[in-house]
């Protein structure tokens, strides 16, 4: 089991919260390693999130949800 974490986008304000902008996969989908799974945003800076490993993905937060940098957004089994 591997966590997919919200990337640390803001070095100056590591505690700043971000937004899960878009999920490109649905809950329970099978993903491959390095597949694009989400786009996130902190203070107008956006970044892509790729699956660190392959497997079945379980989404932990909803689109538009506010998330702390570094916290898990999905789990891959």
């Amino acid at each position: 089991m591997t966590d997919v974490v919200f990337p640390a986008l803001s070095k100056e304000t590591p505690d700043a919260e971000g937004v899960l902008a878009t999920w490109f996969v649905s809950d329970g989908a099978t993903v491959t390693a390095d597949q694009l799974v989400a786009e996130v945003q902190v203070e107008k800076v956006s970044a892509e999130v790729a699956a660190p490993v392959g497997g079945v993905v379980h989404l932990l937060v909803a689109e538009e949800a506010t998330v702390k940098q570094g916290s898990p957004i999905a789990r891959i089994e």
Partner: peptide, 13 residues
Amino acid sequence: MGLPWMAKNARST
């Protein structure tokens, strides 16, 4: 375009 900083548009993904 589906830009994160624009108004959310579900049809753009």
